[in-house]
Amino acid sequence: MSKILTVSLPPHIHAPGSVAACMWRVNLALLPAFGCALYFFGLGAAIVTVVSVLCCIFFEYAITRWMLGRTPHIADGSAALTGFLLALNLPSTLPVWTVIIGAFVAIGIGKMAFGGLGCNIFNPALVGRVFLLLSFPVQMTNWQLPGVDRLAYTDAATGATTLQLLKSGAVEASDIDLWNLTFGAIGGSLGEVSAVAILIGFIFLLVTKVITWHIPVSIFVGATLLSFLAGINPVIELLSGGLLLGAVFMATDYVTSPMTGKGMIIYGLLIGTITIIIRCWGAYPEGMSFAILIMNGFTPLINRCVKPKRFGAAGRAVSA
């Protein structure tokens, strides 16, 4: 017979998914939030995002090709996603050089130093953001007033975020306009402004089955419960700062979150509570980034301890 047959092991069919499809869908889900950022912050939002995305792609390409000597896979969208997420966690007035440093830390230290895609312990975008926050606290808390001067960049008029105002005691919780919190006319990082935009992205990710409900919902539950116990308004806590953005887009990062439903719920509940602990009793007005990074560190432990229930197992599953 002249025909050459392919012989391989089963299964012989494959679901129509790929790493690139997952990553680009998350990028797509970020567009509503990005649109809001453009609307409220104008030029600054555009500059920070473009610089962050391009730099992340460049650093990943450069490190993979010239330092590791491997073939770069830029088209899988993971570097672009890190850049996009980093940008949405930065203020729109951040100078270009700072964004470049953030992108380098995110990709170089947060991701490639651990071995690249799939090997990092901490969420790269958050590594970049927290590095910048600790190194350049002034620039990183320079929040542009939403919808005021859209053509301004580093020289834009600025003000405090809701959480900063609450922390300093400048306003009472009862004075806060929940409408603005929901639709975005509040100061903050690019992606933190509109709750509705993030929820649209959340629904998109759920419907396309890129993520499951476990992590975001348990973060909401954890944060709400502790807010109640601490006697603060949980609605304000959920809608302000980076909690929504973090819960939907950062904590759900595949690589750095647990592998089982139960593990995801534990991880989410703890992120929610740690965030509120930092907000209420910590030095910073916002604690989402720290909470996620802390729990990223616990993910291997959660994976080791929380095993799925085995079919036909006599008792508890044995862990290695």
Binding site: C22, H73, C119, Y254, V255, P308, K309, R310, F311
Partner: peptide
């Protein structure tokens, strides 16, 4: 491609592995 730890294999395994 590299494993991105998306956990889909865990969620589809009928034996809970």
């Amino acid at each position: 491609e590299p494993c991105i730890r998306c956990a889909r294999c865990v969620s589809v395994c009928p034996m809970g592995l």
